[in-house]
């Protein structure tokens, strides 16, 4: 990193926080439910316009990048203090919390068929479908296939999409799912903990807004699920996610990797 002062970055962040919080939370009707727009989403959107307004350059972007991870730690601490008082509730919900971790494999069944059958993607489909494409997923793919491989291109695309739109999309998705009334708020809170702090926060916003009287329990369930994912995510992907994705890819008739036997694509 260059020897450049980071005060501009902090001042910009301050202005973004002030503007975003001053606008405040807005909700509007979309289909069956209410969609919540939260200050954090405005902050992200303001950020997307900064380069075209010539307010930030490459150096500023590089400077700001590690600050994301550092400021996430406050959120982690806050959520931890919600777990302590709710430990007994969490133990009684234990089986659900642990088993819902397998729901993270849902990425494969939602994404892979469309990637292979509709978009005719090659093995990029495996990289983008086996997980929610966060940092850990980059590490796994780079280890197994290399980031220059087709699978690597897929997971990078997923990573960038998630970074850009993941929070916004998670907030909208959670709002829509909440409005269906199909799920208990505890289940929705557990589902929000998928391994990405910003996506979890975005999915929890509308959940807490819809059930404000349950805020501490909901936050505790989300944080515990998040914690579980950070512990088991790597193993889940390595031993279940990747093999399952490879298997389904062959079943769907996906193109074999260059240089591999065509037998894999026989089905």
């Amino acid at each position: 990193m260059k020897k450049k002062s980071d005060w501009k970055v902090h001042l910009l962040a301050l202005v973004m926080v002030i503007i975003a919080e001053a606008i405040g939370t807005k909700s509007f009707k979309l289909g069956p439910g209410n969609v919540l727009l939260l200050p954090m989403l405005y902050a992200l959107v303001i950020g997307m316009f900064l380069p075209s307004l010539k307010l930030v350059d490459r150096d500023d972007m590089e400077i700001a990048s590690p600050y994301i991870g550092l400021s996430v730690m406050f959120l982690t601490a806050k959520m931890g203090t919600n777990i302590g008082p709710n430990l007994s509730k969490i133990f009684s919900a234990g089986p659900a919390l642990i088993l819902q971790e397998f729901g993270n494999l849902g990425t494969i069944f939602f994404a892979l068929p469309v990637a292979v059958l509709v978009f005719r993607m090659g093995r990029e489909a495996i990289g983008v479908s086996f997980s929610n494409s966060r940092e850990g997923s980059l590490a796994i793919i780079s280890d197994l296939y290399g980031l220059d491989s087709d699978e690597g291109v897929g997971v990078m695309g997923g990573y960038i999409t998630g970074t850009l739109f993941g929070a916004i999309y998670s907030g909208l998705l959670a709002g829509v799912i909440i409005s269906t009334g199909l799920f208990h708020p505890y289940a929705l809170a557990m589902a929000a903990g998928t391994g990405s702090a910003s996506m979890m926060a975005a999915a929890m916003g509308p959940t807490i807004a819809a059930y404000p009287e349950m805020e501490t329990e909901l936050s505790a369930f989300a944080a515990t699920s998040q914690l579980l994912t950070s512990v088991d995510g790597l193993y889940m992907s390595l031993f279940m996610g990747i093999p399952l994705t490879e298997w389904l890819y062959r079943k769907l008739g996906g193109k074999p990797a260059a240089g591999k036997s065509g037998k894999e694509a026989a089905k």
Binding site: A13, M40, A43, E62, Y67, I68, V72, S198, A201
Partner: peptide
């Protein structure tokens, strides 16, 4: 606590 996180994310997104 979420807004500062996404402010930094917004700055680096480019």
């Amino acid at each position: 606590l979420c807004t500062p996180i996404l402010s930094y994310a917004g700055i680096s997104i480019g």
